[in-house]
Design a protein around this nucleic acid. Structure first.
Length: 410
RNA sequence: GCCGGGGUGGGGUAGCUGGUUAUCCUAGGGGACUGUGGAUCCCCCGACCCGGGUUCGAAUCUCGGCCCCGGCCCCA
């Protein structure tokens, strides 16, 4: 049998409805913050992604050459495309831009729990705003979305400036190594590396950055740094909103383009891949030929949130099955149309079985049955049967439609 | 790419010290019950992941591949 490609999934209606529900929640919340939805191409020039993330990522992408010999890639992320789009066509729109997207991405990686080769991200980019309120807005929005999803989660907020100030006398190559250890939370590797360099003192200071409870402890480690006021204001804004989060100044996102605030979120019921949120302040547009506009954004791992939420019972809306005998069949489409026009899902039994068999079938796929037989045709009525209670009555069509609509309202 | 555990009808399973018509449950389709439901009865559909090897004979033993699950690496 033909199998679906590795790391991809099929979604049956129940699951698809659950996914659409969560998408709807995210879209609705993001719109309330003034963010508007955008879309970018499913595939882009390979260069877009290597410019942002380096050549090393090529082997983890789906790349191909098109018929014109161009090197292309299925998008492994959305932020690069969004910033490319900004540079291409949105530089003259008044700032800041508040955009969100819901899009599938592709990465050629080993599938695991919560990790697929085609996966969906819901993300936002706040372009052209810089400062503590921009940082806070994006964090608060991420928190709002995750809270609205119903998932249990934990958010950690940090900033790159303290780590940078601690590492300021290391040469760039060593700094990069240190950031990699921090990113992996590899305490032993970090200590060994700094020990070799004769800077074991830094290891303790870096370790202390991770456990900070409040900012006064932070300034003891870093001393005065230029970003102090911005960090303080951002934190007080978050605290004023009363959200639950923790500080972690050991967050060191792998990539160089993050410029300040960084944050991440983790979910429950996931395996090793439990991160559901990635975000921070960055500057990226200049890579694609634009101005050096400051931006803040995040992406939520949509599939992981779905996994974290687990199986949830789906509640189908009211459905009406239109059943008919030979005598009533000619009226069936018109009857179904009356329900559809009133906003109710209605479908015909397409078989030519007896009413008994049609009812038996309808009981599995609908909440109401409308029966059209000789009696109803002669009387100009329909029989409406509530399949959940067994109650039924013979009424004019308009009465049946009203009956179903009313039962939906309660 | 690496380590470990697995792949039998749509779902769940028995068989797996080689030989059976491959078991059972469930789901699905059809029919009976001549217009009131999930019942009952009857019928049907439908599987040994793929390929090579050993053998008279492979779901069963063996090798390789593919895919799934967990973890590592990576994580834009």
């Amino acid at each position: 049998m033909l199998q679906r490609p590795r790391g991809t999934r099929d979604f049956l209606p129940d699951e698809m409805e659950a996914r659409r529900g969560l998408e709807g929640t995210f879209r609705d919340r993001a719109r309330r913050w003034g963010y508007r939805e955008i879309a970018t191409p499913e595939f882009e020039h390979l260069e877009l992604f290597t410019l942002r993330s380096g050549e090393g990522i090529v082997e983890e992408m789906y790349t191909f050459e098109d018929k014109g010999g161009r090197k292309m890639a299925l998008r492994p992320e959305i932020t690069a495309s969004v910033l490319r789009m900004y540079v291409n066509e949105a530089r003259v729109i008044p700032k800041p831009l508040r955009w969100f997207y819901f899009a599938d991405c592709f990465r050629y990686e080993r599938p695991q729990k919560g990790r697929y080769r085609q996966f969906w991200q819901f993300g936002v980019e706040l372009i052209g705003a810089d400062g503590p309120r921009a940082d806070a807005e994006v964090i608060l929005l991420a928190h709002d979305l995750l809270a609205a999803s119903g998932a249990q989660f934990e958010i950690r907020v940090g900033h790159l400036a303290p780590v940078s100030s601690v590492l300021r006398d290391l040469d760039p190559a060593d700094r990069k190594r240190v950031m990699a250890f921090l990113d992996k939370h590899d305490v032993q590797g970090l200590g060994a590396f700094l020990g070799e360099r004769g800077r074991g003192d830094l290891a303790d200071r870096l370790q202390a950055l991770r456990g900070i409870r409040d900012l006064s402890e932070l300034w003891e480690i870093t001393g005065e740094i230029p970003e102090k006021a911005r960090i303080q204001e951002m934190v007080s804004l978050l605290d004023a909103e009363g959200i639950h989060y923790s500080l972690d100044f050991g967050i060191a996102r792998g990539l160089d383009y993050y410029t300040g605030m960084v944050f991440e979120g983790f979910g429950e019921n996931l395996g090793a891949e439990n991160q559901i949120l990635w975000g921070g302040a960055y500057r990226l547009a200049h890579l694609f030929g634009g101005d050096d506009v400051a931006s803040v954004g995040f992406a939520i791992g949509f599939d992981r949130v779905m996994v974290s939420l687990g199986e949830r019972p789906v509640q189908p809306g009211l459905r009406v099955a239109v059943l008919a005998t030979d005598d009533g069949r000619a009226r069936a489409f018109a009857v179904a149309r009356a329900f559809r026009d009133a906003g109710v899902t209605a479908f015909l039994d397409l078989s030519e079985r007896g009413i008994s068999a049609q009812l038996s079938h309808a009981a599995k796929s609908a909440e109401f049955a409308v029966i059209l037989g000789k009696r109803e045709v002669e009387a100009g009525t329909v029989t409406l049967k509530d399949l959940r209670t067994g109650e039924q009555r013979e009424v004019p069509l308009s009465g049946a439609v009203d009956g179903v609509v009313r039962s939906d309202a309660r």
